[in-house]
Amino acid sequence: GLAFDEPEWIDLAARAFRFVEENMIRDGRLHHAWREGKLQHLAMAADLAFMADAALALHEATFAPRYLDAAQSFIGQLDSHYADATNGGYFFTADDAPGLIIRTRTVYDDAIPSANGVLPGILTRLAFLTGDHSYLAKADSIIRAFAGELQRNIFPLGSYIESFETRLRPIQIVLAGDTGEIEPLRRAIYALALPNRIVSHLPKNASLPQSHPAFGKGKVDGKPTAYVCVGETCSLPVTTPEQLNEELRMMRRQH
């Protein structure tokens, strides 16, 4: 929806997300399947990872805080019921799922991406959006837990490698200004492929987490302003879509 300027697609995504929230969560736990009003089976780890990812995508599309809260809730369920405290990463099934003989954990993608493959990237984005760097420690734990798999078989590790790229070199983009006035700058972001981007909105009277490299920055000369940050370094403020596009292209070449 953002990339192709199709707001109806974003609305459809929000409706699908709301359906899951209203129909597939019982007693604070996401479930795996719903049909004709019947809810079955506790969620698999991938279900929670994908819902957290969807929440972050909707937060980026709408800047609505509730989606950031939802993403943290799904990660909280993973931490409470799926985490492998001994070896790192997350098990495929919950610790209280019925009828289990053994609980498996893997980083290999198959018909769908692996939860342990996508989660380091999700956790990295959560860390920078919330300022809670405990999420980075969790991302690093997953990366370390499965690092040896790179030497064994790299082919099913696409999600893991992409997540590692996001953890290693996230490109943080801050848009300062009211929602309507930042739209030209925002569209410039989605003219490029930047899978490791993390987009933050800084409206009037708001502030970024103190740990953010753009903390304390804002609009320049009353104009909507963007900052592009890698590591602890941010670009000079840019106020036109053309400047932002060029800055992002330069960052992509360098990183």
Rank of each mutant, 00 (worst) to 15 (best):
D140G: 07
A191E: 13
L208I: 00
A145C: 09
R167N: 11
K204M: 15
F146D: 07
A176W: 03
R152P: 01
P195T: 04
D132W: 14
L185N: 12
I142Q: 06
N196H: 06
P203Y: 05
Y190S: 01
S207A: 13
Y160V: 08
K138E: 07
L202M: 09
L129G: 13
G158C: 00
R187F: 04
L202A: 08
Q151I: 05
K204P: 08
I171K: 03
I189V: 05
H133G: 12
D178V: 11
E165L: 13
I171A: 07
F164N: 15
Q210H: 14
D140C: 00
L150Y: 01
A147N: 08
V174M: 02
L192Y: 07
R167V: 09
L168D: 13
R152Y: 11
R187C: 00
L168A: 14
V174Y: 04
R167W: 05
S200V: 12
I189G: 00
P156N: 03
A176N: 06
G148M: 07
L202S: 09
D178G: 15
G131N: 12
F164G: 13
I142T: 10
A137V: 11
A147P: 01
G158A: 08
L136D: 03
A193R: 13
I198T: 03
R167A: 10
P203E: 06
A191S: 15
E183D: 11
G158N: 07
R169C: 07
G148A: 11
L129I: 15
Y160M: 13
I142V: 14
R197G: 02
S159P: 01
A188E: 05
H201F: 15
I173M: 09
F164K: 15
L202F: 08
S141I: 01
A139F: 00
L150N: 01
I142G: 04
N196P: 01
A147S: 11
A145T: 06
L136V: 12
L208R: 00
G180N: 15
D132C: 13
S207Y: 02
S159H: 00
T179G: 08
E162W: 03
A176K: 10
E149Q: 12
S141Y: 00
S163M: 04
R169P: 02
Y190M: 03
I142A: 03
P209L: 10
P209S: 07
A188V: 02
G131Q: 11
S134I: 08
N205C: 05
S207N: 09
I171P: 02
R197M: 05
P195D: 03
K138A: 08
Q210G: 14
L129V: 15
G158F: 02
V199M: 02
I198C: 03
F164T: 15
S141P: 00
Q151T: 13
P195I: 05
G177D: 11
G177M: 10
S200D: 08
I161G: 10
H133Q: 14
G180T: 14
N205H: 12
G131H: 09
S163L: 04
T130D: 13
E162N: 11
A147W: 06
I189W: 07
L185G: 10
N153M: 06
R187N: 04
Y160T: 05
P156C: 02
S141E: 05
S200Q: 14
L194M: 06
R197C: 03
E149S: 10
I171F: 04
P170S: 00
